[in-house]
């Protein structure tokens, strides 16, 4: 676990440092700009899906889906970050109690 933490932290730090250090032409490159804009969105979407609809290496559909649906509704209603997270957690927990 510590290895993963240190490798991840070092990689993230290196990216920040690289941004301040590499020549501007690299950062202004169209491909670099596009990747840096689209990659985070795609990854976050991928993480959202796998962490809601999978269990290890199986697809699954359970009360986490209810939590996610509530989170989406809360985001659409422009709730604050904490409200979104708490509403999702509480609704998933309540749904588990009921079923």
């Amino acid at each position: 676990m510590w290895l993963g933490i240190l490798v991840g932290a070092l990689a993230c730090y290196s990216l920040k440092l690289a941004g301040l250090s590499v020549p501007k032409s690299v950062l202004e490159d169209r491909r670099v700009q596009k990747i840096a804009a689209l990659l985070p969105v795609a990854l976050l979407a991928a993480l959202t899906m796998t962490q809601t609809f999978s269990q290890k290496t199986h697809l699954s559909f359970d009360s986490r889906a209810v939590g996610l649906a509530v989170a989406v509704l809360a985001v659409l209603r422009r709730m604050s970050f904490l409200t979104v997270v708490v509403a999702a957690a509480v609704s998933a927990a309540l749904f588990r109690l009921v079923i």
Partner: peptide
Amino acid sequence: DVVAPAAFVA
């Protein structure tokens, strides 16, 4: 367990 997906949506 839905804290992370909810955070990602936000």
